[in-house]
Design a binder for these strands. Structure first.
Lengths: 183, 183
DNA sequence: CTAAACTTTCAGAAATTACTGAAAGTTTAG
DNA sequence: CTAAACTTTCAGTAATTTCTGAAAGTTTAG
């Protein structure tokens, strides 16, 4: 399994971007390789292609499985396991979003809720709690909305995007459109 | 400047979350402190409150300014500089999004465009380029849409959120609503 | 101008994170 | 059952990132 220059460039780039996307270099490279290579790959092939140790490969694959970005694929008659992407690009992107939400937003929302329950210690703390509340609500809006986008699916997202600034106008009309809605 | 237990908890948490949000612990702590503390703070006060070196504080402040999350605030009659948040929570959140887009998405989009221009090296590369194209388009949709959300502002985002699943329905009606739109 | 008050820079130290490879573990063929 | 083929784990090492504090730089008062 030798990577073409095209694949090599992409894999290297996804490696460099890896840490920005929530995983490390190796994990990024492995993901790119599996996604771009249509045939299922064995752990050994991956280690060879990327020139990394077999141990590191094992850890990377485990991580990618925990993110639900790849899954095992059993080839009849073969002893070793092979790996393939866990879905379409859209599915993978959603999984990354989802996982990052869990790591980057949820713990903060949870803490903010707790701190808002605490009895404030003086004047200043009341102002602080108001701020924390503001942050909490913002995060809530954003996550709720990104959930919504995920439910829409890729085609509708595309329609929505093409609509562009029209969204603002539509919002102003929404009451006429959906009078039955309770909010 | 002694932090109340409430502020301390929040600051510590934002520190821990810092690296997940694209900056390091200290930078996260400094940001939280400045945002939660209504009065402008001097670099020395920040260093003292967080028990970090003056040098580290200076670097952190510089970083936050480059993200446009804080700005200097001159107090007449005072020699030293003070720091305040660069805007409302909404503004700050947008800046973080924006900056992360620049770091996490833009370089990838750019590389993908380049790789799509390359002349493919055999059958397989053609399939690979198709995949890369798919990834590119998805990223494009997502970023274009998040831009849109930013332009809407917080109130409209709220309306949109409350609309929830209604968005799907509205989309189906959009042609009746906006017949003049060319797309 | 000089001195004081302040800020920034940056080399090295400390802390954190990632990687290797050998050893231990697991599965299946026979 | 045993041996071969494979995978995982993890202690130690390497690489990277963050932090300190001393030295150099800047600004302003007088």
């Amino acid at each position: 399994m030798k990577m073409s220059p095209l694949v090599t460039s992409a894999v290297m780039h996804f490696g460099e971007m890896g840490n920005r996307w929530g995983f490390n270099r190796t994990v990024g490279q492995i993901l790119a390789l599996i996604v771009l290579h249509e045939e299922p790959l064995s752990a050994q092939e991956i280690a060879d292609a990327l020139s990394i140790s077999r141990g590191n490969t094992s850890m990377g694959l485990k991580e990618l499985q925990s993110w639900q970005l790849i899954r095992q694929h059993h080839v009849p008659g073969e002893r070793k396991e092979f790996f393939v992407p866990a879905g379409t690009i859209w599915v993978l992107a959603n999984r990354v979003f989802e996982e990052r939400r869990k790591r980057e937003i949820d713990p903060t929302m949870s803490l903010l809720r707790d701190l808002m329950m605490d009895t404030p210690n003086g004047e200043k703390d009341i102002a602080v709690q108001a701020r924390l509340n503001e942050i909490h609500d913002l995060l809530e809006s954003v996550t709720a909305w990104s959930q919504e986008l995920q439910n829409l699916g890729p085609e509708k997202l595309d329609t929505l995007m093409k609509l562009g600034a029209g969204v603002g106008r539509i919002l102003e009309l929404k009451d006429k459109l959906l009078p039955a809605k309770s909010n």
